[in-house]
């Protein structure tokens, strides 16, 4: 753990990423306490108030208000919960699904592989929004269904990358040597192949996280994701679009939040990949 922190501080990009991620996670956990105002409270008198930093008045909105007078800062804080939970669970779910299917496909080959990979092709051939529309129309809009849709659209990347890696790892001598020592399939898969696949999977996961945050905003925009009046960054971004010429703060601040979390996760992911690669992290 000490080594972990030491190594993290030594890498500036990694540290920045970690700070972003930790900050956002902390904010989302403490959202009800941290939010200065009720994120759902409508105040038409103060609609589209511009950002101010005067500390005197009660009607002080550091990041302004939206078109019906809700405090943007409070909405960003409360929206971080939804956004982070949806994004993290969708990526974890999609990753777990994709990696395990990819492992099985690559390792066992044959008809199992053909079925799994054609399933992935099938998944990729369905237009994303159409797929989301169908699933949500059938299951009804809810956070759980949103996560399911996002995970289902994401697993194929994990599966393809994993399968490709496994195909090359499977023929490596250390796998043969494990087989020769009497290791079973499970041991070979989890001790020898999976750890060597994770490098690639982490990279995919960071990219996926960014994609999922943006996709969530698109789905929320279409009314398929987070339901109003609840806040999510994507929803706020989408809602502010029509006011962008007159009230830039409506979509700018949620946008900045998305950029920061995506950037943070990418940097952290990059650093993690290096940290867990024994070749790159130096003599330990």
């Amino acid at each position: 753990m000490k080594r972990f922190l030491h190594h993290l501080v030594a890498s500036r990009a990694g540290l920045f990423g970690a700070i972003c991620v930790v900050l956002f996670v902390a904010v989302s956990i403490g959202a009800p306490i941290l939010a200065p105002k009720d994120p759902l409270k409508i105040n038409l008198a103060d609609r589209l108030a511009s950002p101010t930093l005067s500390l005197s008045t009660v009607g002080n909105y550091p990041l302004g208000t939206d078109q019906i007078g809700r405090d943007i800062l409070s909405r960003i804080i409360s929206g971080s919960r939804v956004t982070l939970i949806v994004a993290a669970t969708a990526v974890l779910l999609g990753g777990a699904m994709g990696i395990s299917l990819g492992l099985v496909a690559g390792y066992f080959g044959g008809w199992i592989e053909r079925i799994i990979m054609r399933l992935a092709d099938l998944q990729l051939s369905i237009p994303l929004l159409l797929f989301a529309l169908i699933v949500i129309a059938v299951l009804g809009p809810s956070l759980v269904n949103l996560v399911i849709v996002l995970a289902l659209t994401g697993w194929t990347r994990f599966a393809r990358i994993t399968r490709g890696e496994v195909l090359s790892l499977r023929e490596r001598e250390f796998v043969l040597s494990a087989k020769g020592a009497g290791a079973g399939h499970l041991r070979i898969l989890f001790r020898h192949i999976l750890p060597n696949v994770l490098t690639a999977a982490i990279v995919v996961a960071t990219l996926e996280l960014a994609r999922v945050v943006i996709l969530e905003s698109a789905l929320s925009f279409l009314g398929l994701g987070v339901q109003p009046p609840n806040a999510s960054w994507g929803r706020m971004l989408a809602d502010g679009r029509e006011y962008v010429a007159t009230a830039w703060w409506l979509s700018t601040f949620p946008g900045v939040a998305i950029v920061l979390i995506v950037l943070g996760v990418n940097l952290l992911g990059d650093w993690m990949r290096d940290f867990f690669d024994p070749k790159l992290s130096g003599v330990r």
């Binding site: 001598e173 250390f174 040597s177 060597n196 070749k279």
Partner: peptide, 14 residues
Amino acid sequence: MVFQDPYASLNPRM
């Protein structure tokens, strides 16, 4: 068995 390429015979993550 002992193989030809010693590096490929070792699991880089172990």
